[in-house]
Computed example of a mutant assay.
Amino acid sequence: MEIKNELVVGAPLDKVWAYLLDVPNLAPCLPGAELVGDDGNGTYDGKVVARLGPVKLSFSGQVKIIETDDAAHRMVMHAAGAEDKGKGTADMMMTVVLAPASGGTTMKVEQDLTVSGAAAQFGRGMIADVTGVLMQSFAECLQYNITNQGSGGTTTAVRAARPASGFAIGVRAARMALMRVFARFFLPYDRNR
């Protein structure tokens, strides 16, 4: 399934780009994600844990930046993993393109995601809504870390993302779904919705 998100990070484009290329520094901003290994050649081992109601999803896998274009501020990453308990898998190709925006940087994120197992039971709409919530949290953490970098005499991340909390994610995703339903019934028709 393809999922698209557009976010604004209140920081200069060059700083956002540099931050995105630093995977170990970037990982704490992904809710529920943790890096556990680095092969030294740009491939990182990681874990992602999320709880959605009674379902706890725990994946182990690898992520690698497979393409970068400094002039276009475009990056392509590949991530793949399997459930620690269970037979589910996830495979994602993610393309990020940055552009200057008033007050910061626009980040366009396109994900081509394939999931199986327990995660697939949530359906496309719920997965897209949850992804949108996680991406917004990621952008907020990114902005916070970039704007506060160096304020304490260190260049490491100041704020790590909160763990992926099923309740908070579920509430925000449900709100997004309700807004879509409301728009379908009560607002003029828009093909792009």
Rank of each mutant, 00 (worst) to 15 (best):
A27E: 05
P188H: 06
M94P: 02
A173S: 13
S102R: 13
V48E: 07
W17C: 03
K56M: 02
A99S: 15
A101W: 03
T105S: 08
A128P: 08
L21A: 02
G40A: 08
A80E: 15
T106M: 03
L142K: 03
M179Y: 09
A174W: 09
L7V: 04
L20D: 07
V36H: 09
T105C: 03
E140M: 08
P28M: 01
K4E: 07
L113F: 07
F59I: 13
D39E: 07
I65T: 02
S137R: 13
P24Q: 04
A33P: 05
I66R: 14
L30Q: 01
V23P: 02
A177S: 11
A119Y: 04
T114K: 05
R51G: 02
G81N: 07
Y144L: 09
V36Q: 11
E140H: 04
Y144F: 11
G88H: 14
A27D: 06
V115M: 04
S116P: 04
T154Y: 05
A33M: 14
N148W: 00
I127T: 08
G104C: 15
M77V: 12
T89W: 05
Q136P: 06
A128R: 10
A183D: 06
P28T: 06
A72R: 01
A128E: 12
A119N: 05
Y144A: 09
V23W: 04
A139S: 12
M135K: 10
A139F: 04
D38K: 06
M93G: 03
A79Y: 03
A157Y: 01
S165K: 12
F182R: 00
T95I: 12
R172Y: 12
I169K: 12
D91N: 15
L7F: 05
M126W: 07
S137T: 09
T114D: 04
D70C: 00
A174M: 14
V36M: 10
E110M: 09
A164D: 09
V76F: 05
L30A: 08
I146E: 08
A174I: 12
T155P: 11
G117L: 06
G10S: 12
Y44R: 01
S58H: 14
M94W: 06
A174K: 08
L134R: 05
G88W: 15
Q149Y: 02
R184Y: 13
F59V: 12
A11F: 12
D70L: 02
L134A: 15
G40P: 08
F138G: 01
A168F: 11
F185E: 00
M126T: 05
G123S: 04
D84N: 15
A101R: 13
A168R: 10
P54W: 09
F59H: 11
S137A: 12
T105N: 07
Y19H: 07
F122E: 00
G42P: 14
G37K: 12
L13S: 13
S58F: 12
R162M: 10
G103Q: 05
D39M: 10
F185K: 10
M126V: 13
M126G: 02
C141L: 09
G166C: 08
R159H: 00
L113S: 11
G104H: 11
T105Q: 07
A128N: 09
D70T: 01
A164R: 05
T156V: 13
